[in-house]
Every structure is written in structure tokens, then in C-alpha cells.
Design a protein around this nucleic acid. Structure first.
Length: 685
DNA sequence: GGGGGAACTTAGCAGCAATTAT
DNA sequence: ATAATTGCTGCTAAGTTCCCCC
């Protein structure tokens, strides 16, 4: 489905070098965490903290040397959470305060006390450090156990007991380690305005492999004749050949764009020879590609394993950076490989050549005093800058739209997480203001001022008709005189006057999150079983997805998989019927042959249990079927990941005693670690 | 005041890996 | 053990917001 929008035709102007404030980074590794300030009054801070979170474990993460190569060896221990933090944007200091009254932040209006302590690692051996570590261990173990129990039934029936136990221990250990190493940035003080980091070191981007020329037995033909292409032209020909199975190689625009760009890569001779794409025969190249794919699929276990390990090595080397003494995962550390551009919808630039990026195109951003990433041998970077007001590590300009591409951190990083948290805090603020704002714009609809009226209509649309929002915001269409007195900047100014930080998308976040919360309240019963609760959760999630218009085309295999599921249900029903008859039989026997016979009694019990198990499984399947059917055309992922305050879900899980793993997978749990850690059952959005 | 660019978020899909069925 | 199915991850296009410059 999706956004079939005509992309802008016009080529964007060459981008100019940005004049960025080059804030010098004040930190050097080894300085031992100067960014962690000492609390002026640790005792008091502790008291405040305890008042609020006495029931929570305050763990002191043990920081191993994050990376042996790193110059950072000192570990920093932080504890105590700050319940208020500030965020500043557009020069206005915005205070973000955890203002939930139920969390007892009566002191939120007071200036936040510094609650940071720097400790030497050896202190960990003492007192509270040990206790806390233990508590967290217990917590981890419990969580793992839960998971284990679920899997134990279905899975490993073959493995020996020792193996199972071993795997279990390993899992616990791994989880514990992860927990230990997790940077609990949400318990730290925010940086001053605009500063994103104080120390940043990384390896630079990972470049895609060089082009491998075709083997001698694979040929390209033009007009029936073998033509040996130059390396550059050949590479682009291969891009096209690889896509031959795809529908878009038949599209006129795609073909024309491709051919035009391909010819640019050709030598003079090639260009004068190859004038017509229809006379090109990529058959052998295509066949080779298919064979390669097939071969990859049929690789032996060992080969696959080796490949996996090689990839892991690359991830280990390039996939992480060091940001303010913490090892953080990078989201996309690979430079985008060259290929043929495929925009979404009927994109006018589809088929154009997306060029190979060279180190000379790449800007590196890192600390001044770190090891600067080395460019590939014989190359140099376009630029190395040290701008700690931005979050990217690497950037380059892409040749199709002329826009910038960035390498940034993973969603589980501090930089992303903090921003996410802030987003939801702004949306929560809107909650208390939304009634006023709605009342106001409804009044404004009757205003004598044209501008005001238009603004009111626009606001209404932003609030209620999500889909058209963008359509109305950019008045591009010829007939689109609707908002002739209004533009985005006027509207945004108005929005931020209504509430600091308010922009159009805040409404979306707010509406989504508040809907989830309401729906969850409405749909779930504490007495339901887990499967039913999850159905309710998904339904609530679905309500949001529908609201946000996150539609998808029904999966191609939908009908089939639905039928399969139905077959399973039928099978289970039969099984249940059988189990019931057996139970009756057993009961009867027990009655007639003497109820004192313990063997028969045991049999009855066993049959009873079997019936119960069958019933449960049947219910689970039926619930699953309902869920899937309802989900046919709805994509839940986007709202779950981007619009729903995770704290709502976490609180719900706690209230309903549903393990968090049931609603968030590993990646999601990492992304929302801050919410999972800080949220209590009584959280209200 | 509006055009455009930089930076960052949102979005959906393809392909692969994990899981489950046969 | 293999095949089928499902679920996740990586990828990257596209959208939003802010801010600067003319």
C-alpha cells in the first residue's frame, strides 16, 4: 500500500558545506567521566531518591573495559535517578518533568537535585553494591526461567538433561551480562542544550565489497554479438541483470532511466555501439546470478557457519562505537551499496544508478582527541569534523536526490532513547492541554479572520484526519488553494504558542498513545488468561494502527495460512472430543471397578488434565485465528515502535501479569529498556 | 517570508533466520 | 531430516521539523 506520491522532479541544488558550530569536545577518554557530575549533596539526593523509588532496585552497573582498544579504562558507577530532566530546543529551555502524580513526584517543581556519584570500581565490592548486584541477578534469573518454561514443552525433547541445563545456564549468564553492561542513561543527568555527546570514537563506515568482474564464461551480448564491457559498464549491467525477474525492469521509466545512466558509465566505443536497451542480452549474467543465489542457499552447514562468523566479525569491528565511555551499537554502519534506484510508487527516478560511495565522499564525525578512523588504504576522507551537536558518525551525499545519508546509533542507544522518551513526554503534556486546544480551534472556526479560520481547519485535520495532514500542509497542487493564508511555519508558530514543543506530529503521538491506554483499559479483564489478554492487547494496538492508517496489503499467503490454522483448530477439536470420551470412560471404570483403586483414580486425573490441556490449546488457537483474521490488513509494527508510549504497555503487563516478552521481542525490549526499567504498574500516560 | 537544506524520525518491504510441521 | 511457515532484521526511501539565508 502506501504513499504513492510523485517525487519532486527537480534536481536539488548542490549542497553547501554547512557552517556548523564546531563545539570543541571537552572530554578526552581516560578523563574518567567528567560528564558525570558529583552530587553536591549526595546524602540528600539519596533521600529524595529513596522516597520515590525505594521499592526499586538501584543497580550499579559494573563497567568492564568496554573495548580493549579503547583508551577508557576507568569504570564509572552511577546510581540514583533524576526524576526531572530538561530538554532544550530552538533556544527555549524546555523542562521535561515526570509529572505523574501517582509516581509521587511532588517535588518535581523544585529544582532537580543532582543525583550523581562517581565511584571507583573497587567500591563495588562493598555494601550496597553487592546487595544490588544480587537483587538484579535474582531478577534476571526469574525472567529467564519464565522463558525457559514456555519453551521447554515444545522444544528440546531430544537433548539430554545436562545439555538443557547447560544451555539454560548460558542463557542466564548472557542475560545477566547484558543487564550488567546496559547503560542506564535514563538515570543520568541530561547534557546542556544542544550537546549530544562529549566523547565519540568509532571505526568509520564499512564499505561494500569491490565489484568482482564477470568470469570469462559469462558474456553480455548486444544485437546477438558478444561484447566485453569495460569494468564500470559491466558492473551497472550486472545490477540490471540481477533484477531481471522483477517486474520493474519492464517499466518504461525504469528502463529509460537505467539506460541513460548506464550509458554514462560506458566508454566512447561502448556508447556508440550500445544504443538500444532492447538489443541487450543479459541472459548469461542473469543466469549466473541465479546460480549464485541458489548455491548460497545450498551451502553446507559449515559454510554457512563460517559466513556467519565472518559477518559477526565485521559487526564486532564496525558495529559499535564508544560514546561517553559507553559502548553503543550503531544502527547502520555499512555504506549503502551501489545499485539501481527503486523509489516507492511510480517514482520518476526509478532505475537511475545509485553510485558507489568512495571514502572521498564521506564525512567523518568524531571527537577531536580520539583515534580518528582510518580511511581504506590509498584513500582519504572528504572531511573529518568534530561536531558534538549532531548525532551522526558518518555522512555522505547520495546522488539520486542529492540528500544526505547518515550513519547513526541503534535505537537502543542513549541518543535515540532519550529523544524517544522526550517525544512521549511532550505528548503527555498535550494530554492536559488538548481539551483547551480543541475548544479553541472549534471556536476559531467561526472567526472573522480568514487566517484564523484556516488555521482552525488545519488544526482540526491535524488532530483528526491524519491521512490528509501532509496533503494540506504542503499546498502544491494547482487546485489546492484551500489554505492560501496559511503555511507550515505560521502553523508551527501557532502550535508552539499553544504549548511549547507542540508540532503536528505530537498530535499523532498523543492520539495513538491515549487510544492505546483507553482501549487497554476497556478491553482487558484481569481474569482472562494470557492468550485472551494478548488478544486484547493486539486489539488495542490495532485500534491505534487503524487510527493512524497503518494499512498493509494482505499477505500473499494469508488465505493459505488461515486455512492451515483452521485445520489445526479442527484437529484439536477432534482431539478434545476424544480426550473427553476417554475421560468419561475412565470415570465410569473407576466408579464401577471400585473407587478405591488408586491406579484408576490416577488415570482419571490424568485424563482430566489431558482434557484441560486440550481445551487450553484449542482456545489459544482460536484466539490466534481471530487475531490473525482481524490483522489481515493492518500493520501493527509502526505504531508499536513509533507512536505508543512503551510505558503504557509496560504498566499494562505489570498489572495484568503478562510477561513483557509476550508483547515486545528482543529488539523492542532493548529499544524500550528505559521504559521497562522505570515504569511501575500505576503509570498513566 | 519562503525556499531549501541538514538532521532526524517514520515506514514498509525483502530476504533471511528461527521455529514448527511433516 | 527436510519442508513450510512465521517472525525479525536490515535496509533505505520518504516524511517532519528546525533553522538559515536570501
Amino acid at each position: 500500500m502506501g504513499r504513492e506520491k510523485d517525487a519532486k522532479e527537480d534536481e536539488k541544488a548542490k549542497h553547501k558545506a554547512t557552517k556548523l558550530k564546531r563545539l570543541s569536545d571537552s572530554e578526552r577518554a581516560g578523563a574518567g567521566g567528567d560528564n558525570i557530575k558529583k552530587s553536591p549533596n549526595p546524602t540528600k539526593a539519596t533521600e529524595n531518591m529513596d522516597k520515590r523509588k525505594s521499592h526499586k532496585k538501584v543497580k550499579t552497573p559494573k563497567m568492564e573495559n568496554v573495548e580493549s582498544s579503547s583508551s577508557i579504562s576507568e569504570s564509572v558507577k552511577q546510581e540514583l535517578q533524576d526524576d526531572a530532566f530538561t530538554a532544550k530546543k530552538k533556544g527555549v529551555k524546555r523542562k521535561r518533568i515526570k509529572d505523574d502524580p501517582k509516581e509521587g513526584t511532588s517535588d518535581s517543581a523544585n529544582s532537580p537535585t543532582l543525583k550523581k556519584k562517581k565511584k571507583q570500581r573497587h567500591l563495588e565490592e562493598e555494601g550496597d553494591g553487592v546487595a544490588q548486584t544480587k537483587t538484579s541477578k535474582k531478577r534476571t534469573q526469574k525472567m529467564v526461567k519464565k522463558e525457559e518454561e514456555e519453551q521447554a514443552v515444545s522444544k528440546k525433547s531430544k537433548k539430554t538433561k545436562e545439555e538443557i541445563e547447560e544451555a539454560r545456564q548460558l542463557k542466564i549468564k548472557k542475560k545477566e551480562e547484558e543487564e550488567q553492561n546496559r547503560w542506564r542513561w535514563w538515570e543520568e543527568e541530561k547534557y546542556e542544550d544542544g550537546v549530544k555527546w562529549k566523547f565519540l570514537e568509532h571505526k568509520g563506515p564499512y564499505f561494500p565489497p569491490e565489484y568482482q568482474p564477470l568470469p570469462d564464461n559469462v558474456h553480455f551480448y548486444y544485437n546477438g554479438k558478444k561484447v566485453k564491457l569495460s569494468l564500470a559498464a559491466e558492473e551497472v549491467a550486472v545490477f540490471f541483470a540481477q533484477m531481471l525477474d522483477h517486474e520493474y525492469t519492464t517499466k518504461k521509466v525504469f528502463r529509460e532511466n537505467f539506460f541513460k545512466d548506464w550509458r554514462k558509465e560506458m566508454t566512447h566505443e561502448e556508447r556508440s555501439l550500445i544504443q538500444d536497451l532492447d538489443k541487450c542480452d543479459f541472459g548469461e549474467i542473469h543466469a549466473m546470478h541465479k546460480a549464485k543465489t541458489e548455491a548460497r542457499k545450498n551451502m553446507s552447514k559449515e559454510e554457512k557457519q563460517a559466513l556467519k562468523e565472518a559477518n559477526q566479525k565485521i559487526v564486532d569491528e564496525y558495529g559499535y562505537c564508544l560514546l561517553d565511555h559507553h559502548k553503543e551499537r550503531i544502527g547502520n554502519f555499512k555504506i549503502e551499496p551501489p545499485g539501481l534506484f527503486r523509489g516507492r510508487g511510480e517514482h520518476p527516478k526509478q532505475g537511475m544508478l545509485k553510485k558507489r560511495i568512495q571514502p572521498e565522499d564521506v564525512i567523518i564525525n568524531c571527537s577531536k582527541e580520539c583515534r580518528i578512523p582510518a580511511p581504506p588504504a590509498g584513500h582519504h576522507w572528504k572531511e573529518v569534523r568534530h561536531d558534538n551537536t549532531v548525532t551522526w558518525l558518518v555522512s555522505w551525499t547520495e546522488n539520486i536526490q542529492g540528500s544526505n545519508k547518515y550513519i547513526m546509533l541503534n535505537a537502543n542507544s542513549k541518543l535515540k532513547g532519550e529523544k524517544d522518551w522526550e517525544k512521549y513526554e511532550v505528548a503527555r503534556k498535550l494530554k492536559s492541554r488538548v481539551d483547551d486546544i480543541r475548544y479553541q480551534y472549534l471556536q476559531d472556526l467561526k472567526s472573522k479572520q480568514m487566517v484564523t479560520r484556516q488555521r482552525a481547519v488545519a488544526l482540526y485535520f491535524i488532530d483528526k484526519v491524519f491521512k490528509s495532514l501532509k496533503l494540506f500542509l504542503e499546498n502544491k497542487q494547482p487546485g489546492d488553494e484551500l489554505f492560501d493564508r496559511l503555511n507550515t511555519s505560521v502553523l508551527n508558530k501557532h502550535l508552539s504558542s499553544l504549548m511549547p514543543g507542540l508540532t503536528a506530529k505530537v498530535f499523532r503521538t498523543y492520539n495513538a498513545s491515549i487510544t492505546l491506554q483507553q482501549q487497554l483499559k476497556e478491553l482487558t479483564n484481569k481474569s482472562d488468561n494470557v492468550a485472551e489478554k494478548l488478544l486484547s492487547y493486539n486489539r488495542a494496538n490495532r485500534a491505534v494502527a487503524i487510527l493512524c492508517n497503518h494499512q498493509r496489503a494482505p499477505p500473499k499467503t494469508f488465505e493459505q495460512s488461515m486455512a492451515n490454522l483452521q485445520a489445526k483448530i479442527d484437529a484439536r477439536k477432534e482431539q478434545l472430543a476424544l480426550a473427553k470420551t476417554e475421560l468419561k470412560q475412565a470415570k465410569k471404570e473407576a466408579k464401577t471397578k471400585g473407587s478405591s483403586d488408586p491406579k484408576l483414580q490416577a488415570l482419571v486425573e490424568r485424563k482430566k488434565a489431558a482434557v484441560k490441556r486440550c481445551e487450553e490449546q484449542l482456545l489459544k488457537l482460536e484466539v490466534q485465528a481471530t487475531d490473525r483474521e482481524e490483522n489481515k490488513q493492518i500493520a501493527l509494527g509502526t505504531s508499536k515502535l513509533n507512536y505508543l508510549d512503551p510505558r503504557i504497555s509496560v504498566a499494562w503487563c505489570k498489572n495484568m501479569e503478562v510477561p513483557i516478552e509476550k508483547i515486545y521481542n528482543k529488539t523492542q525490549r532493548e529499544k524500550f529498556a528505559w521504559a521497562i526499567d522505570m515504569t511501575e504498574a500505576d503509570f498513566e500516560f
